[in-house]
C-alpha cells in the first residue's frame, strides 16, 4: 500500500523527529514534554498559555501534562509545514517582546504581556493575526477540551438531558 497523505490522521503516519529545524530551538538540548515541539518552544508556548488561560498558572502537573498531550496530538495531526509555522510564530512573539521591551515574553510585566497579545489579536498584520488566532485555538483546545475542566465551567452534560430540563 502506498503511504497516504500525512495530513490525514486516519492513515498510519511515521512520526517525525521531535525537534523542528530552527537553530535557536536546539539550544535547549534537552528533551521536553512534547514530541512535536522542542523544550525551548514548549517553554515559550507555556508562557503565552498562562496569559491566554490564567487558570493554567495554578494548574498542577497532571493538568499541564494533559494540556501538552492534547496540543501535541493536534500538532501531530497537522503536516510538518504547519508545525514549523507554529514554532516560528512562537519564536516571533519572543522576538517582538525583545524588540518592544528588551526582555523575553516570559519576563514581561503582566500588563505588557496582555498588551502585546492584544496587539497581535487586533492590530497586527494579517499573517501575525492569524498566527495568534491559531495559537489561541491550540491553547484553548489544550485546556478546555480536558474533561477534568468541565466541572469548573459549570458544564455538566448528560446523555439524558431531558430528565434534567425541569428538575
Amino acid at each position: 500500500m502506498q503511504p497516504a497523505s500525512s495530513a490525514d490522521p486516519y492513515f498510519p503516519v511515521v512520526r517525525p523527529p521531535p525537534c523542528e529545524s530552527l537553530r535557536w530551538q536546539r539550544r535547549g538540548g534537552i528533551t521536553g514534554p512534547m514530541v512535536h515541539l522542542s523544550a525551548r518552544t514548549v517553554a515559550a508556548l507555556d508562557a503565552l498559555a498562562r496569559v491566554i488561560v490564567p487558570e493554567l498558572d495554578a494548574a498542577d502537573g497532571d493538568s499541564w501534562r494533559r494540556f501538552h498531550a492534547v496540543i501535541d496530538e493536534a500538532l501531530g495531526d497537522r503536516p510538518p509545514r504547519l508545525r514549523r509555522q507554529f514554532a516560528v510564530f512562537l519564536g516571533l512573539v519572543h522576538v517582538l517582546a525583545v524588540a518592544r521591551h528588551g526582555r523575553p515574553f516570559a519576563r514581561l510585566a503582566p500588563e505588557q504581556q496582555a498588551a502585546l497579545l492584544m496587539w497581535l489579536q487586533d492590530r497586527a498584520p494579517s499573517l501575525l493575526r492569524k498566527g495568534f488566532w491559531g495559537l489561541k485555538t491550540l491553547v484553548f483546545m489544550g485546556y478546555y477540551a480536558q474533561g477534568e475542566v468541565a466541572a469548573t465551567l459549570g458544564y455538566a452534560p448528560s446523555f439524558s438531558g431531558n430528565e434534567r430540563l425541569h428538575a
Partner: peptide
C-alpha cells in the same frame, strides 16, 4: 456548543474570557 468550541469562538483571552467560560451554565 461544547467548552473548547465555545472558548475558541470568544474573541479575547485572559481574565474576562475565563470569567465567561466559567459560567457555561448561564
Amino acid at each position: 456548543y461544547f467548552p473548547f468550541t465555545t472558548a475558541k469562538n470568544l474573541i479575547g483571552f485572559g481574565a474576562e474570557h475565563s470569567e465567561l467560560m466559567r459560567r457555561m451554565d448561564r
